[in-house]
Write a protein that binds this DNA or RNA. Structure first.
Lengths: 338, 338
DNA sequence: GCGCGACATCGAAGCGCTTCGACGGGGGAA
DNA sequence: TTCCCCCGTCGAAGCGCTTCGATGTCGCGC
């Protein structure tokens, strides 16, 4: 294994000079820097991560905590994870994956456990009252949450503004003249454990519907087509005047529209549908769906940027709420006269 | 930060004794071991991963290389990744996530780059002629592939026996009397880049069909319901006598069955369907599908076990092919008389 | 009763890197 | 010309852990 002393010898400088040339923490003459760079390339030198962590008390590794609970839509999480890895790599960081089936124990492990294994952490799928929050707050390492808990004080969070997204969907439908609307939401267990983003959508949906004087209802829905069908039937039965639907559940978006079709309701002819979901999903359906984009990749990137800011000692905004953007597609249409 | 010397002092022993008590590499008296354990707990000591890696030349971190190419079914990959993390953790290892959008560069990075950052690696989604193989072979670190390349010599691989799985599906249909069958496979790009498991299914399917003297056809299919519909229509047109379908494409399994339904073909009444996919998927559809289980979680676990074996210096089998198991569900039925 | 081996433990030497204080030499100010 | 300062570089001291050889202490056999 080629080490820093080898490089130093080869370049005719001291090891410390190589180190400074690499880190840029002290000025090094252009000439020397070039010689060192050449030696590094020639010898194929790669710093030893462990040694670096030991001496410098930073590992350039960050932890990504992915709970993978039931009911979460895997591709969204994955997309987010991938963008975190990519962004982290751009900043010279690697990513340690924690799935935290083991509860807070896993967190504790990486944090105090394999301490210094990670410099910082990114936490996905935050609950309103997440039991990991106290740990995170007590930590000496910076962290960024993707998602907002009920009490975000002292934490750095980033997320789509789901409440505004919910409102936006309703506003759009209301603007088109729809008077009776429904929200088809996440699976019941997601609400049961009080997942922040799910509740926020409901709140936004309800608030906007109230403000606009619409008749509205909320239906959780499991992530199966059978459940979608059941919800569709129920909707029809309980709200015969229904003309607007907001879907916040990637897995059932398509089955739901299919189910409506089979029940004789055409989209957008009889029913206008808006969704909160990844743009690719909305755009790829047979009836492209008017949707508020769920910017999974951007969230991951933002989280990394914030984290890098914190690691660099900068002040970063405690809350980053991405404004929702609604893209008009083929699933919405003005309400035809009653 | 509490370090090993603190523990040693607190327990009244030498640091080396603590180290040996922890690693078990030298005998330590029961009494001392207990005292040390107590001190560790009391002080909340956690070994510093970097220091350990530096001194011991092992980091207890393994890399998980997840390419995330277009056309792969994300939940399956994710399930596999999660089981790798869980299993690794059971063995005291952490997992570094590489998405390798950056090509072989990422691999090189972790391997020689942040050297010693990982002890070993697990590689997902192997192509028949994977450009990472030479790197992997040249590596001084053990690795396990999930999937088989064309030339697996010198590598350790584990996978479902997809060829046998393809055969099994056909055999089942043939056994039920079906004479005209089709395979609805992965998206075209998956074949284009010569993904091992996809080709193997085709080979098994074709071989078994030939052996049984069936009329057969293979149709790649993109992962959208629109594509599923198109394939269904095409199937009907080109093979009007079709009564058996094998689906090897998680994303279109359900849409395909729906499409058949809309074309007037009932499953299993008119068409028997078998699939190669995760058991949960097959079981959760409206018509539960007879399927060969894709044991994503087991694959991840096996890979970790093999890797741990190699790290421990044991001889492990170079090739582990999991035998396919077909579970009978509601989507198959004997062919009704012609 | 003495010696020897086995067992349990200690001490010290690194692992490869970063960082701090020191140092030499060249340029600007006086 | 002299002094000072600063730029660029060096040397050495660790970071926390593992590991190797050494040491002390029993208990046993002859």
């Amino acid at each position: 294994m080629v080490k820093i002393t080898d490089v130093a010898r080869h370049a005719g400088v001291a090891p410390s000079t190589v180190s400074y040339a690499l880190s840029g923490k002290r000025p090094i003459s252009e000439e020397t820097r070039r010689r060192i760079a050449a030696s590094i390339r020639e010898l194929g030198y790669r710093p030893h991560a462990g040694a670096r962590a030991l001496a410098g008390s930073r590992s350039d590794v960050l932890a990504l905590v992915v709970p993978l609970r039931a009911g979460v839509h895997v591709p969204v999480v994955m997309q987010c994870a991938v963008s975190v890895v990519t962004a982290a790599r751009r900043h010279g960081h690697d990513v340690l994956l924690l799935t935290q089936e083991e509860g807070a124990e896993g967190l504790r492990h990486v944090v105090s456990g394999a301490t210094a294994l990670v410099d910082a952490l990114i936490v996905l799928d935050v609950q309103l009252h997440d039991h990991r929050l106290p740990l995170l707050r007590a930590l000496d390492r910076p962290s960024v949450l993707i998602g907002f808990p009920a009490e975000p004080a002292g934490l750095t969070c980033v997320d789509l503004d789901f409440e505004a997204a919910g409102e936006l969907c309703v506003e759009r439908l209301a603007g088109l003249g729809h008077r009776v609307v429904a929200l088809v939401g996440a699976p019941p267990e997601v609400y049961a454990r009080r997942t922040a983003f799910a509740e926020r959508v409901v709140r936004g949906f309800t608030a906007a519907a109230g403000r606009r004087g619409l008749v509205s209802a909320v239906h959780p829905c499991e992530a199966t087509s059978a459940a979608a069908r059941r919800v569709a039937e129920r909707l029809l039965r309980e709200q015969p005047a229904l003309t607007g639907v907001v879907v916040h559940n990637e897995a059932v978006l398509e089955p739901l529209i299919e189910a409506f079709g089979q029940l004789g309701l055409r989209v957008p002819g009889d029913l206008s549908v808006t969704a909160i979901c990844p743009a690719e999903l909305a755009g790829s359906l047979r009836v492209p769906v008017t949707s508020v984009a769920l910017p999974a990749a951007e969230l991951g990137e933002r989280a990394v940027e914030l984290l890098m800011g914190k690691l660099a000692g900068a002040e970063v905004p405690a809350a980053t709420l991405l404004a929702p953007h609604l893209t008009e597609r083929a699933s919405t249409r003005p309400r035809t006269a009653p």
